[in-house]
């Protein structure tokens, strides 16, 4: 449907205004991260820097005070990477296997089992914090990157299973049966028949898991310590620290650093990110 002229102007105007609204915080973060502090406290927030400087970025990365250490965000950035990579890989692989079993090797009550796994994605994680802290403490995983990765695998596998199950249920079962008649076993079918056609859903699953785990704060704050806290926790410590002058420009630079990896993924593969979001609202 195409609306008449005057209302089209209104429509374009509204859409443009909303685009500005969504872009404004990003613009504020970027410009103010490139200003000396005096220009923020003395000037206005939406002005471009008069004196461009990278000092806030360098400070946020390597010298800013995080908690008790003037370490900058750098070590925490690596903590996040070390946690995210194995957690994404393992949860995605488990999801693929689960989806394969749940669609091509069906058994009694498999839908109920899947429903129980799916519900686990939506629980408020407050309900598992206390026992998980105990379990990590008892197994010596408390405060380690491995422990955090494990937590993210446990509470991410429901989503990855959802993705692959929905995707594989549209995959022709006849092909699987044909391969079986040709003598292919469980693993052969998985590696030779299912996985080669799983490219798109693997991209969706990896992006979803990467974004969610990178952006997590609750688990990182609850179960991490200095050697394993992720970027989000460090950023929050940087911004909330009450000692000394508030270095807003450093805070903005740090916020962009914490946002950069997921933003990059969004720019490169936004289409898949949206597909993941949609499937995450279950309607596949």
């Amino acid at each position: 449907m195409t609306a008449p002229r005057p209302s089209r102007i209104l429509i374009y105007g509204t859409l443009g205004l909303f685009a500005l609204y969504y872009l404004m915080p990003l613009f504020v973060m970027v410009t103010n991260s490139l200003k000396p502090l005096a220009e923020i406290t003395g000037g206005n927030m939406v002005a471009l820097p008069q004196e461009w400087t990278l000092a806030p970025w360098l400070s946020a990365w390597s010298t800013a005070q995080i908690g008790v250490d003037p370490s900058g965000l750098r070590p925490y950035f690596w903590n996040s990477i070390k946690m995210v990579v194995p957690a994404v890989a393992i949860s995605t692989l488990l999801g693929a296997l689960n989806g394969y079993v749940l669609t091509k090797w069906r058994f009694r009550y498999d839908t109920l089992l899947f429903g129980l796994m799916l519900f686990s994605c939506f629980i408020p994680f407050q309900i598992v914090l206390i026992p998980m802290a105990r379990l990590l403490g008892l197994t010596g995983l408390a405060g380690t990157t491995g422990g955090l990765a494990l937590v993210h695998i446990v509470y991410g596998v429901g989503f990855t299973t959802l993705y692959y199950r929905n995707y594989y249920s549209a995959f022709p079962t006849e092909l699987v049966r044909a391969a079986q008649i040709d003598g292919a076993g469980f693993w052969q079918i998985f590696w030779r028949v299912m996985l080669p056609s799983s490219g798109p859903i693997t991209v969706v699953s990896v992006i979803w898991q990467f974004t969610n785990i990178w952006n997590d704060f609750l688990f990182g704050a609850s179960f991490g310590d200095i050697d394993s806290q992720p970027m989000t926790v460090a950023l929050n410590n940087l911004v909330q620290s009450s000692t000394g002058v508030k270095e807003y420009n450093v805070h903005f630079a740090g916020a962009i650093m914490a946002a950069l990896p997921t933003m990059l993924v969004y720019v490169v593969a936004g289409r898949y990110f949206v597909r993941g979001l949609m499937a995450g609202s279950v309607k596949g």
């Binding site: 504020v28 973060m29 927030m45 997590d216 929050n236 911004v239 916020a255 946002a259 993924v265």
Partner: peptide, 19 residues
Amino acid sequence: YLYPMALSFIVTGTAWKWI
């Protein structure tokens, strides 16, 4: 319109806290 969804709530919170 959609990019904020890719950000951490900590980033969103930091940006809006100062805005």
